[in-house]
């Protein structure tokens, strides 16, 4: 990760350049690609939340889909109930998700591996049902989060053919870049170093005066902030939230993405996001090739994704990336 050697300012500049380039590129791609680009950005943020939690703090969550749901519902609720503008609604979603994540994180810090996995799994299955119980949350119909057409200033800037999907892509990309930039800075601060110290050896870190439990809670909270941001963006792309929009498979998918990215590597979340969006697309094309049967089209993406996941865990534990020379050298 080159950004390790960059100052916060130059990281900000880098993000800005990448952002402008991506936004400019959206002018040359079709509607589908723009929508997929926005999806990549959402997954990227969600995957970063897992990488932060697992790679940098050694905790595991199979329930981050539920935290995404909190963010999505928070955003949609403030949008429909109080008519918040969508930018503020997104932030409100993050606020709610962060508070929820903090509460969960306090409990999580006491639990070890499989117990934490079990608890978060139960949360992923159980939480969406809250929506059915409260009229306020819209029941099975869910809540509307349709932000409408792009605002006038954008249209004036970009011309009248500026579409909604392109607008989604812009929002998701900008938000994802800001989030990634903020997290990278955080990880290079003393907080980030403490997390890693606690991750690698909690006894030694404890002796060195680092409060491991506090670091874990903080990591879970920040991770939840990211996940709820991803959830709010996800809801924005869908135009609504429903109890079924955040299934268990979403929780599994983002963990998969994090593994493909390399769990210790924040920059890899881009790879993870791209793969999560590309695999259904590629298997779709493959299915057409194989005669377009219902059985194949429904199951090929899962098959490919699972096989890839297993292969990566077994043979590329650092994720899907070109091995660096430094790493390749044998340490004796």
């Amino acid at each position: 990760m080159h950004s390790r050697h960059l100052s916060p300012l130059s990281r900000a500049l880098l993000s800005l350049v990448v952002g402008v380039a991506l936004l400019a590129a959206s002018g040359f791609t079709g509607e589908l690609r723009n929508y997929q680009g926005a999806q990549v950005a959402v997954y990227l943020v969600a995957i970063a939340s897992i990488i932060l939690l697992t790679g940098y703090s050694g905790q595991i969550s199979l329930g981050h889909g539920a935290i995404m749901a909190i963010g999505g519902y928070g955003a949609a609720l403030s949008f429909t109930l109080w008519n918040f503008p969508f930018e503020i609604a997104l932030l409100f979603g993050v606020l709610v998700g962060t508070v929820g994540g903090f509460i969960l994180g306090v409990a999580a810090a006491r639990l070890s591996g499989p117990y934490l996995a079990g608890t978060t799994l139960a949360l992923a299955v159980g939480l969406p049902s809250i929506a059915d119980q409260f009229h306020l949350l819209g029941g099975e119909q869910g809540l509307n989060f349709d932000i409408g057409d792009p605002p006038r200033w954008v249209v004036r800037l970009e011309g009248s053919d500026f579409t909604q999907y392109k607008w989604f892509f812009w929002i998701a990309t900008v938000v994802a870049l800001i989030a990634l930039w903020a997290i990278t800075n955080l990880l290079h601060s003393s907080y980030g170093r403490n997390w890693r110290a606690g991750r690698n050896n909690s006894v030694a870190a404890g002796l060195a005066g680092i409060n491991v439990a506090k670091g874990k809670v903080l990591a879970f909270t920040v991770s939840s902030a990211l996940a709820s941001l991803a959830g709010a963006l996800f809801a924005l792309l869908l135009g609504l939230v429903t109890p079924t929009a955040f299934p268990l498979s979403l929780s599994f998918a983002i963990v998969t993405g994090a593994v493909l990215a390399g769990v210790g590597n924040l920059a890899g979340s881009i790879v993870g996001g791209v793969v999560l969006v590309a695999i259904p697309e590629i298997s779709g094309a493959l299915t057409t090739h194989l005669g377009d049967s219902q059985k194949v089209s429904a199951n090929l993406p899962g098959l490919v994704m699972s096989a890839l996941l297993i292969l990566v865990v077994l043979f590329m534990p650092n994720g899907l990336r070109i091995r660096k020379f430094k790493r390749a050298k044998k340490t004796t």
Binding site: T54, G55, G58, I60, L62, G113, P114, A117, R199, F252, V255, T256, V259, V263, G264, G302, L303, M305, S306, A307, L309, I310, V313, L314, P317, N318
Partner: peptide
């Protein structure tokens, strides 16, 4: 970093498979 979650991930992968 993968070591702690590898069994979970691998068995989830097998489940999907």
């Amino acid at each position: 970093p993968i070591a702690e979650i590898a069994p979970v991930i691998a068995t989830l992968g097998l489940l999907g498979l």
